[in-house]
């Protein structure tokens, strides 16, 4: 007989690749940045401890507040519009209409387009004179809008472009809709519910885990919007698209203020962790689970 290891040790050994990676590439850097957030660190010279100065500086830093506000506006708009849009598309895709396969592929495809290429394409789409978007607006008698040059429009241009990447949500909603038990629809039909009532009182509650999942994920991903404004507007015009991650990046890699950037990153980490905890809590409380 071979010597038997306790099962918890065997299990831990099997998951150790992930566990080591978690400690090494996530926990360690996050801990290091907590340390540096209490220092002044230019990367070129040794770090100097400064206590809470970085956190105190944030309170009076107008760009910190501007970037926070822009990020929240973007996230709220993107999650609300994107969520409703992807649910609507998923419902359409579940009706088994002709062409469903093609449309599902078309909606999913943009999620595979690299952000650099998407930024190039959308920058061209947003051009004032010969862009596709203003051409479309002109045909209904609106515009032209200087999407990326007008401080009032630039953040909304980002929201519009962001909607292009909601294919993942659509696909997840479609899978969840497929899982709604047929018997529930039949019961609703017997009760004589109309299409809208059926959707609100049968479909939505049955897919609440997917709604929660998609809302949380798109909130978290929208909060970290970064590459599009970096590539398309550099945060401008007039800081209209200066978002939080871009501000962290600027401080860390352009202004050489790693200490301040670490403090900013920590604010971001706390927001992400808080949202994750809320999501885990909500998923226990609110979601409806079918009896097994």
């Amino acid at each position: 007989m071979r010597r038997r290891w306790p099962t918890w040790l065997v299990g831990l050994a099997w998951v150790s690749p992930w566990l080591v990676g978690f400690v090494w590439f996530l926990a360690a850097p996050v801990a290091m940045s907590l340390f540096y957030s209490f220092t002044d660190y230019s990367l070129l010279e040794k770090s100097v401890p400064v206590g809470l100065a970085n956190y105190r500086e944030m309170l009076g830093d107008s760009l910190f507040w501007v970037s926070l506000r822009n990020t929240l506006v973007y996230t709220f708009a993107s999650v609300a519009v994107g969520g409703a849009m992807s649910l609507g598309i998923a419902v359409l895709l579940e009706r088994r209409l002709p062409g469903t396969g093609f449309v599902r592929a078309a909606v999913f495809l943009p999620t595979l387009v690299p952000i650099v290429a998407a930024a190039i394409g959308w920058r061209y789409m947003f051009t004032t004179d010969n862009g596709l978007i203003n051409a479309g607006l002109k045909s209904v008698g609106v515009g032209p809008v200087d999407w990326l040059g007008d401080p009032r429009a630039a953040l909304w241009a980002m929201v519009l472009m962001g909607l292009w990447f909601y294919g993942t949500s659509v696909v997840i909603y479609t899978a969840a809709l497929r899982d709604v038990p047929r018997s529930l629809y039949e019961a609703a039909a017997i009760d004589g519910l109309g299409a809208w009532r059926r959707f609100v009182s049968v479909t939505l509650p049955s897919m609440s885990p997917a709604v929660l999942f998609n809302t949380v994920m798109s909130t978290i991903w929208s909060l970290q919007i970064f590459a599009a404004p970096l590539l398309m507007t550099r945060g401008g015009p007039d800081n209209a698209t200066m978002v939080f991650s871009l501000y962290v990046y600027r401080n860390a890699f352009e202004y050489g203020r790693m200490g301040y950037a670490s403090a900013l990153a920590w604010v971001q980490i706390l927001i992400a962790v808080a949202l994750t905890l809320v999501a885990l809590g909500l998923s226990r409380k609110l979601t409806y689970y079918r009896a097994a």
Binding site: L26, P29, V248, A272
Partner: peptide
């Protein structure tokens, strides 16, 4: 649920 931009500066360090 932890996006890359949150940890890019810490990972750089």
């Amino acid at each position: 649920m932890i996006p890359f931009t949150v940890i890019m500066a810490p990972q750089y360090l």
